[in-house]
């Protein structure tokens, strides 16, 4: 019993630290969202948020980003992960994991060099003779292209995380299973469908949940490429706090983000379990 006490002593700083920084804001966020500055309960902030025009487009675009980017990343990462594990190419793995270290802000700025007016995409199209003068890709008239640019930048940046999780997962699948599948008559496609994917399910699940939760916080990459032309939930929270100085409505947005993340996570878990 005494050495158990010692262990709790070693763990106490960590637990207290996390409790303080992760749980106490949770409570304060509720307080900010539902109580006014004089401490009275109110639904004004909720109503005001919902009545805001930008709220709906923020919600729409955030969800659109999540449902576009994440399936795209999963497929890309899975294909690359299969290739890397079969070939055992560690240097390729290293190159592909470079974007892992790059922030979403930096990724947005990096893709600016591709899509800007005098950027490399325009130069490339021009040199092929496809266009006569540069196209304004990143303008408010081209919302769908702004969207695409953000998708490409985010896909470039965060696929490496999914890849890392899937490669780690694939490496945990014993080589025997691969060989058994082949010997018992499965070809490439059948092996993936009947053996690899089911065995990789825990990893896919982790990747899906981690990526979804972070994708709902997407913000700097959008800001860098699209400014405020494409609203997203985190961006609105940011603007409400730092521009309009309203922590109440910013908190409402924060709560909406966690609500929607939890909802999606729950859906994933349900759907994945039913498949089994």
């Amino acid at each position: 019993m005494r050495s158990d006490e010692k262990i709790y002593l070693l763990l106490a700083p960590l637990v207290l630290y996390i409790l303080f920084f992760f749980l106490s804001p949770f409570g304060s966020a509720f307080k900010l969202a539902f109580f006014n500055d004089s401490g009275k309960f109110t639904l004004d902030y909720i109503v005001k948020t919902i009545k805001d025009v930008r709220f709906y487009s923020a919600l729409k675009y955030t969800v659109l980003f999540v449902v576009t980017i994440i399936p795209l990343q999963l497929v890309t990462a899975f294909v690359i992960a299969l290739y890397i594990t079969r070939r055992g190419s560690s240097w390729l793995m290293f190159i592909v994991s470079i974007p892992l270290a790059i922030s979403d802000l930096a990724a947005g700025l990096i893709f600016l060099s591709v899509f800007s007016e005098s950027g490399f995409l325009n130069s490339f199209l021009y040199s092929l003779g496809l266009i006569k003068r540069p196209i304004y890709f990143l303008s408010y008239q081209n919302t769908w292209f702004l969207f695409l640019a953000v998708v490409l930048a985010e896909h470039w940046r965060a696929t490496s995380i999914v890849l890392l999780i899937l490669v780690a997962g694939l490496q945990m699948i014993e080589k025997d299973f691969h060989e058994a599948a082949r010997i018992f008559g499965a070809g490439f496609i059948k092996e993936i469908y009947f053996v690899t994917l089911p065995l990789l399910k825990p990893s896919i699940q982790s990747a899906l949940i981690i990526r979804t939760i972070f994708a709902f916080q997407m913000f700097a990459v959008v800001l860098a490429l699209a400014g405020d032309m494409i609203p997203v939930l985190s961006g609105e929270a940011f603007f409400w706090y730092s521009l309009y100085r309203n922590p109440h409505i910013a908190s409402v947005y924060a709560l909406i983000i966690i609500l929607i993340s939890v909802f999606f996570t729950f859906v994933y878990l349900r759907v994945m379990r039913q498949e089994l």
Binding site: F26, S251, I258
Partner: peptide, 24 residues
């Protein structure tokens, strides 16, 4: 449970952490 608690804590969105923290 401690391990799970640590893991899930990271899943809280940053806006939810940062905005209320300002008052504190």
């Amino acid at each position: 449970s401690i391990m799970l608690f640590i893991l899930t804590s990271r899943m809280l969105p940053i806006p939810l952490l940062a905005i209320p923290l300002t008052n504190l």
